[in-house]
Design a protein around this nucleic acid. Structure first.
Length: 943
RNA sequence: GCGGCUAUGGCGUAAUUGGUAGCCGCGCCAGACUUAGGAUCUGGUGUCGUGAGACGUGUAGGUUCGAGUCCUAUUAGCCGCACCA
């Protein structure tokens, strides 16, 4: 029988569907294992060769675990809401739902060809109402919750209301936008609307008047992780800061738990570090300062409380509310001019231009420890969004304060012994303190002679005990903006009554996305949902009705924004456990069985987006009692990106003649991208090139060795570089098994690398060789039911050990090498014995499932190879009678000797010293020392 | 500026974790079969040297009987954060 990959692959892909081979159900008698890939956004371009990399890697692991007897959940779905479909809709009028379905179908077709073991009966799509029902549900729950810092968890907002009714804000410790203080009677005296407004300060999903990243070109707000260097990640359009009323999620409340959770999960250190950076915990002190000749006071945050005696000025962020209050009449014009100037700058300009600027407010603050008078300045190097938006400036020990002081000629007062601040500030936290006030301040704080660390601790303690300030932990992590002025996203289950939001009852969810006829913003600048004709909430009949029925008594306007992309991708892993449940996000028992994802595979680009939001979202659900596991993704593997490997031809200037790579330096040439699909091993298919484009129809070529060799470069895989390689093409030419194995053979899974088909023949050759163990060239079946020899057993057991180890360590590239070696060994031993080959087929099946299913059947099995058992390595077969020792002199290996396995140290030493070859190397030298490393090496030190 | 990662033949990579550097594959060279294919098979392939041998894991030191692996410094590249007080 000849190896016909096309027939074999189609046959088994069909059988897998017919037999529901990959369908999985909860089974309490089996241990679970949950493998998950980050689900793709189905783009119009279809899958390129880089997409399947992670899917193949996880598929191998899933199949391996299944062979080990685990009940493996390996689902797949689509992150189906997103900007491209909407922008396509704006351009063409095509409904995003149609584009999305088409793209999904294309993806599915491509995925099916590669032979994944996905349980497609569990597929989810984020744009499916049955799915986003639960996205909306989670949002409602967040709206109805607040974060209790004492319990470190989310609790129902009703409980908070009760606390307010009884004690006001007295004694509460909760996460909020702004610390408020009121008594129970004050609370009870408020109107319902006032109460609602106050509660917004505490809800986990809240409507906040916040500075947001506004992208005018996209016409929407973006989250922090969607903006890089002041440009939108998608599209690269400028982003400006704008104050807007937006839905936000109180992610910041979870900052500490998000940080602590990292300790319990098995992710790469670099990814954890990225998240730690993003969360940005810093421990410091808040100190209150009074403003001179006024009732005003303000608080600053510092990590260097020890430098309190070196404060020579204060700085406020331009956006700070204090600015207006402290600015004196005399300084008003100057300050306003400065504020105007900074307001105009986009974030990008602020990043690129770091020149010192600022303005004096005219007021002075009083150092609470020394009663010294210090000028208050305003400058945009202080950020409103971090700490309190105000700092105490210590120019001697902070480089930014230093630059500011130099520029405006302010005092620089060193506090550390021996530091030189004539040229630059001394930022290091090293050295001994000096220059504390001689008599100490009131209460007796003297820092002289202490180390910086001791001084920080002592000042903290002092400030705390005297009530001048408090110890405070700050996080860089901001609350996530959750509104998008878009159509193609989840609608908010929110309507507005008297300008205050109200949630739609949980039993009325999902709130379906309405149809609209235009996808742009409305003329009045409302989001696209403003075009919807039927987008009002009848609160009496609990249903959506036409807009013209709005009477603001029983019928109210619905929220016009939709949710961002990360909403649907935050809890999808839970939904896979129970995708068709109409009563709950996930059934409790199913959740208890599957727990969380054991192995999550995806790209690093989601480090500060999806992977933070998803952890936050899951922790919230966990607080609610929905998700059993606190961390959603136990182990995470980042697959590298596959870059494009572009090919070039070299046209001699002003001609239609092309010169081969090796000869191009002799001419004046222009490199031109050429479609990599008409180039093989860097050799151009000249005929195909002439047909590629009419302008090359008459092209002439200067060849080397009768071939046209193309140049190459590694670039991003993209249409414009003509370097997109489609997996279908590879499957068509070599088969899915070769594609799978080759992608794994390319290198370590976590490394980025260019797609390079130059080596694919090697893998394909292996598959054919492997087939050759079963059938010779005359198509005769070779497999015989004979007892394997010791050598044959050793070869296959070596393979068992290696492959098991490799899969556990995701070192698939070395596994492929091991398969090749073992195949060569078996071929040279002419071993085609049933027992050996059966084992081999099982070992190979995670990598190349189609060919293995076929051979498994040929070997006489009725069941799928998926239900075979992973073989155990029997170490007995690997044991040797003798062991090879390397004999080295001063560390340089000179020759090898075989010794019996149980030879003792002394006899080895003796034998080595007596060996002729040793005598030659020792000639004229003295033996200083002999080191015998068991089973490895004998090193003789000579002088 | 702070933090992290990486560096090995012509190329992708490997090295039992401190013990013979370069497995496997590509490419290249030679040969076989052939009537030529972008097929298959066999052998060779780090550098220098005819040779014994010497040198060799970005660079410079160090620890060690022994270093690609550990330590110090340094260079280059990639990534994350960045007026974060």
């Amino acid at each position: 029988m000849e190896y016909n990959f096309k027939e074999i692959e189609q046959k088994w892909q069909r059988k897998w569907i017919e037999n529901s081979t990959y369908k999985v159900a909860e089974n309490k008698n089996k241990k679970k294992f949950y493998v998950l890939n980050m689900f793709p956004y189905p783009s119009g371009a279809g899958l390129h060769v880089g997409h399947p990399l992670g899917y193949i890697a996880s598929d191998i692991y899933a199949r391996y675990k299944r062979l080990q007897g685990f009940n493996v959940l390996n689902p797949m779905g689509y992150d189906a809401y997103g900007l491209p479909a909407e922008q396509y809709a704006i351009k063409t009028g095509q409904h995003p739902a149609i584009t999305t379905v088409n793209n999904i179908n294309r993806y599915r077709e491509q995925l099916d060809k590669i032979g994944f073991s996905f349980d497609w009966s569990r597929e989810v799509r984020t744009c499916d109402p049955h799915y986003y029902h639960w996205t909306q549900w989670a949002f409602v729950k967040m709206y109805k919750s607040y974060y209790n810092n004492k319990l470190q968890k989310a609790c129902p907002i009703d409980e908070l209301v009760k606390l307010f009714e009884e004690n006001g804000t007295n004694g509460i410790d909760v996460s909020c936008n702004e610390e408020l203080s009121f008594t129970a009677s004050e609370w009870n005296a408020k109107t319902d609307k006032e109460k609602e407004e106050l509660l917004m300060n505490y809800r986990i999903a809240y409507l906040g008047e916040t500075m947001v990243n506004w992208c005018p070109k996209l016409g929407t707000v973006l989250a922090n992780d969607e903006v890089v260097d002041g440009l939108s990640v998608r599209g690269g359009y400028p982003v400006v800061q704008k104050k807007m009323r937006q839905w936000c999620l109180r992610v910041s409340a979870y900052a500490q738990r998000l940080l602590d959770g990292l300790e319990k999960i098995d992710w790469t250190e670099s990814l954890k570090e990225t998240q730690r950076n993003w969360i940005g915990r810093s421990e410091g002190t808040e100190i209150g300062f009074n403003v001179k000749d006024s009732d005003l006071s303000f608080t600053i945050f510092t990590t260097r409380a020890d430098t309190i005696f070196g404060v020579t000025f204060m700085v406020l962020a331009p956006e700070s509310e204090l600015v207006a209050q402290v600015t004196t009449d005399k300084q008003k014009d100057e300050v306003n001019a400065y504020l105007e100037k900074t307001k105009k700058r986009t974030e990008r300009e602020r990043i690129s231009d770091r020149s010192v600027s600022g303005v004096f407010s005219g007021s002075y603050a009083i150092n609470p420890l020394t009663n010294e008078t210090i000028p208050i300045w305003i400058s945009d190097y202080v950020l409103a969004g971090y700490g309190t938006g105000a700092i105490m400036a210590v120019p001697a020990h902070d480089s930014r304060d230093y630059a500011f002081a130099k520029h405006f000629n302010l005092e620089i007062r060193p506090l550390i012994e021996g530091c030189d601040v004539s040229e630059e500030s001394f930022d290091a936290k090293e050295g001994l303190m000096i220059n504390s006030p001689k008599e100490g301040v009131e209460g007796g704080l003297i820092l002289n002679g202490l180390t910086v660390k001791e001084a920080i601790a002592k000042t903290k303690e002092f400030v705390k005990s005297t009530g001048l300030g408090r110890i405070k932990v700050n996080y860089r992590l901001r609350d996530a903006t959750f509104s998008r002025q878009r159509y193609w996203g989840e609608p908010f289950p929110i309507y507005y009554k008297d300008d205050m939001p109200h949630t739609i009852d949980e039993d009325k969810l999902p709130l379906l996305l309405p149809e609209i006829d235009k996808y742009q913003p409305t003329e009045s600048g409302q989001p696209p949902l403003g075009h919807a004709k039927k987008w009002a909430w009848d609160d009496k009949n609990k249903c959506v009705v036409e807009n013209d029925k709005i009477d603001n008594i029983t019928v109210f306007p619905l929220e016009l924004c939709t949710m961002p992309g990360f909403a649907g991708s935050s809890a999808y892993y839970l939904r896979y456990m129970d995708p068709h449940n109409e009563k709950a996000l996930v059934d409790k028992e199913k959740d208890a069985y599957w727990q969380n994802v054991d192995l999550y595979v995806g790209g690093t680009e989601h480090a500060t987006g999806h992977l933070i939001y998803s952890r936050f979202w899951n922790k919230f659900l966990h607080d609610l009692g929905v998700s059993i596991a606190e961390e959603p993704f136990q182990k995470l593997i980042n697959q590298g990106m596959i870059q494009g490997r572009s090919n070039f031809v070299y046209r001699i200037k002003n001609t239609n003649t092309f010169v081969s790579l090796g000869l191009k330096d002799k001419y004046d040439v222009t490199p031109i991208h050429v479609d990599v699909n008409i180039v093989s091993n860097d050799v151009l298919d000249i005929e195909a090139f002439r047909n590629w484009s009419p302008e090359y129809k008459t092209a002439e070529f200067i060849l080397e060795n009768d071939k046209y060799i193309c140049g190459w470069a590694v670039e991003k895989m993209s249409k414009s570089m003509y370097n997109v390689v489609n997996p279908d093409m590879i499957v068509e030419r070599y088969g899915a098994d070769t594609l799978r194995m080759y992608e794994m053979f390319l290198g370590p899974i976590d490394q980025s690398k260019p797609w390079d088909t130059n080596g694919i023949d090697g893998v394909n050759r292996f598959i054919h060789k492997f087939w050759g163990l079963f059938f010779n060239r005359n198509d005769e079946y070779l497999v015989a039911n004979e007892t394997p020899t010791k050598e044959e057993l050793k070869s296959i057991h070596k393979l068992i050990k290696k492959i098991t180890f490799d899969i556990e360590h995701f070192s698939y590239n070395t596994s492929i090498s091991a398969f090749m070696i073992c195949t060569s060994e078996l071929l040279s031993m002419k071993c085609s014995k049933q027992e050996v080959l059966e084992t081999f087929v099982v070992l190979l099946s995670p990598f190349a499932p189609h060919i293995c299913e076929e051979l498994w059947e040929i070997l006489g099995h009725q069941t799928s190879v998926c239900d075979a058992q992973w073989p155990q390595c029997n170490e007995e077969y690997l044991k040797e009678n003798t062991i090879n020792y390397c004999i080295s002199f001063n560390g340089k290996v000179r020759y090898n000797v075989e010794f019996p396995i149980d030879a003792d140290k002394e006899s080895i030493e003796k034998a080595v010293l007596a060996d002729e070859r040793s005598l030659k190397w020792m000639e004229g030298k003295n033996v200083v020392k002999i080191i015998v490393v068991p089973k490895k090496i004998v090193n003789i030190v000579i002088k």
